[in-house]
Simulated scan of single mutants.
Amino acid sequence: MGATRVLIIANPAAGTVTPALVWELVRVCRSGVRDVSVRWTTGPGEATGIARKAAESAPPSVAERALALPTAMSATVSAAAPARRTVVVAVGGDGTVREVAAGLASAWRGAGPTPLLIVPAGTANSCYHTLFGTAPWQSVVSSALREPVVRWLDLARVAGRLVFAGASAGISPRAIHEARALTSHVGPSRYHAALVDLIPRYRPYPGRVTVDDRLIHSGSTLLVNVGGSRYRGGHFELLPRSLPDDGLLDVCVLGGEHSVAEMMELTRTGAHLSRPGVVYERGRRVRIERTDGRPLWFEHDGEVLPLGPTEYTVDVVPAAVPALATPSLTAAA
């Protein structure tokens, strides 16, 4: 049974969100769902509250209502009452998706799971790329609403915050920070332009990385990437072996002995794993440190955390949020 209600949560501050895009999304949704509504966010964190409220106010499914009734009545309800499912669509970048996912993951589930669907309209859109590749969002939305398949995706937790796409230390947060000033660019080109400008100036940092208390790296560090998403920065396949629902965090460490430009090019196709000094591991807890006492540049879901700490610990949160996938992609996974 497909969705019967769609709530669109759109972030007007995200890279490529426009009223025209949201209206096109409404049109696509209404081709199969009558009850479609839109909420525009007005500030950071608001999407979490909107998503949580939507999940907690979703009507119970047929099966859940039937369980609460005597046997004879439950059979009548199952036959006569159509199943209802609310789907929450996040329109924005990885930060917007993270906020919506956090709201759905923290909601009281007495009314059943409320799944997430992503429409990419940010700077990087790594979450969408990981789940749907390069498929146009219009076809993904139509297919997912018509034949919904729910996958329970893992999240992570760092510094008391939930993480969706992933987290990183090193050159990535520096590039994200500098991309904010490139107002002449929009979408993924903004991040890529910041990287091109930063590469000649960037210097690796002395660091240490442990996975489930096992030391996997110590020394000069170009980049550490942690998460369930295969892609970061839009199209950099830093974690090519990662699955978003295997209950583990994938970790990739690029040593500082490598050329920044070369490694950034290799990560576009996952070819960096064949280079010496590149470490790839899996685990449930990852500790990332800077060992010279200086602040560690660190981000998650495209948001750079305030400078100060010299280390961060990332923990997996297995099967934390339901998300819609298309039948073909689910079979391929």
Rank of each mutant, 00 (worst) to 15 (best):
R146Q: 10
C29F: 01
V100P: 04
A10M: 02
T291F: 08
S328P: 00
G219S: 12
V253L: 11
R27T: 08
G110Y: 04
G170F: 04
T114R: 10
H217G: 04
H129A: 11
S189R: 14
A124N: 08
L69E: 15
E24M: 02
H272W: 04
G112L: 06
A159F: 01
E265K: 08
V88E: 10
G255F: 01
L131M: 12
P120R: 06
S106P: 00
L324M: 09
V141D: 09
G15D: 05
L222V: 00
R214V: 08
W40P: 13
E99M: 09
S143G: 00
L239Q: 13
R65C: 14
S126R: 05
T114F: 06
M73C: 12
D213F: 05
R27D: 12
A261G: 13
F298M: 14
S328M: 03
T269H: 12
V286W: 03
T330L: 09
P244Y: 05
A271D: 14
E99C: 11
R146N: 04
L67R: 15
V140Q: 11
V91C: 09
L155K: 05
E311W: 07
H258E: 11
M264V: 13
W297F: 11
T183E: 13
A319D: 07
G49F: 03
L155D: 08
Y205F: 15
A121I: 02
V278I: 10
M263W: 01
P306Y: 02
S274K: 08
F132Q: 11
D246R: 08
A72I: 07
Y128F: 14
E299F: 02
H177V: 00
A107L: 08
A332T: 00
V316Q: 04
R174P: 00
H129S: 03
P113I: 06
L222T: 01
S126N: 13
G228H: 10
V150A: 07
D35R: 07
G166A: 12
S220T: 05
R146H: 11
L254A: 15
S328Y: 00
R232W: 07
L198D: 03
L25S: 09
V304F: 02
T42K: 10
R52S: 04
R84Q: 15
T326L: 00
L131T: 02
A156L: 03
R109T: 10
R230K: 15
K53E: 15
G32I: 02
P59I: 00
A181G: 10
A102I: 00
I171S: 10
V26Y: 04
G256C: 10
A320F: 05
L273H: 06
R201C: 06
A3E: 09
P70V: 09
P115C: 06
V196P: 01
L182M: 12
G93Y: 09
T96D: 14
S328D: 14
V304M: 03
V88L: 08
M73Q: 15
